[in-house]
Design a protein around this nucleic acid. Structure first.
Ligand SMILES: [Mn+2]
Ligand SMILES: [Mn+2]
Ligand SMILES: [Zn+2]
Ligand SMILES: [Zn+2]
Lengths: 140, 140
DNA sequence: TAATTAACGCAACCAAGTTGCAATAAATAT
DNA sequence: ATATTTATTGCAACTTGGTTGCGTTAATTA
């Protein structure tokens, strides 16, 4: 039997089978205090005294399913996560490029309109774009 | 003491410390008979009876250093290789997007002019673009 | 407060890619 | 042709980001 619960965490609202556990709150708070993307590896480093890495991967996956986070692969094929804007479990509509600074390692989401144009004779579904270079802070 | 040798394999010419070994010839022939990109995993599968996977990774790395192949990370963070055009050990000037078919898995290089525009306040050095969707064959 | 079951911790596992080292085989010198 | 040099190879062991199975714990509901 499936049951639904509304979970309010600050100003965020989820609909779905997601419990307001200590782990969920801890992970969410990381994305509250930081607006840029965070790699799974970094989260494991930061939270390893407070929760198991298996739990981290599992909660991240669930938060992505729920449309609160989106994921992508960074520089070395490592997994990164960042907050969604206006996504739900029904649909992720925030496919956009990401920028990683080769100096400080910071990753942020770029606006959608920096997307690749369509390719002739092919139907583009997903566009995984990772730009690398110097960010605002490290450039000047 | 360093020595130089010109190695001619078909119409391809290398300058550098690269021996015309059985392994090098085998790997090169794979890129001769196929114009699309090939993943390291696929090459290991295909050639495992003929050479060790360590050798495959090492030869691929060397061919990339020599400007004959370029590499990029595909769908699951796996390493892919494709032929360069007019690159050398001195400089790789073939940064371009890649297209992977979600149906048949084929990956090919796209033309340079499909590149991302510049981003304000940031200096873009590398642009790793992997588009996914249906290729010509699988689309129609 | 008790019952239900999603979520957790742990340990073992998986797989792509790397490393150290002794053996081998291209290329060069004689 | 043969000996010498040393880049390259095979093998086994390792590294590491991420996954899986399962018994226990704790969030939610009755
Ligand atoms: Mn993003
Ligand atoms: Mn290419
Ligand atoms: Zn930076
Ligand atoms: Zn296809």
């Amino acid at each position: 039997m499936i049951f639904f619960s509304s979970i309010y965490l600050g100003y965020i609202c989820f609909m779905g089978v997601l419990r307001k556990t200590k782990s969920v709150k801890l992970l969410l708070s990381e994305f509250e205090k930081q607006s840029t993307a965070i790699s799974a590896i970094t989260l494991i480093e930061r939270l390893q005294s407070k929760m198991n890495k298996t739990t981290i991967y599992r909660v991240l996956e669930k938060l992505e399913d729920d449309g609160f986070l989106h994921s992508f692969l960074g520089k070395n094929g490592y997994k990164w996560y960042a907050k969604c804007t206006n996504c739900s479990s029904a649909e992720h509509h925030d496919v956009h490029p990401h920028f990683q600074c080769t100096d400080c390692g910071k990753v942020d989401c770029l606006s959608k309109d920096a997307l690749i144009p369509n390719i002739p004779n092919r139907k583009v579904d997903v566009s995984r774009v990772v730009l690398q270079g110097k960010c605002e802070d490290c450039f000047t």
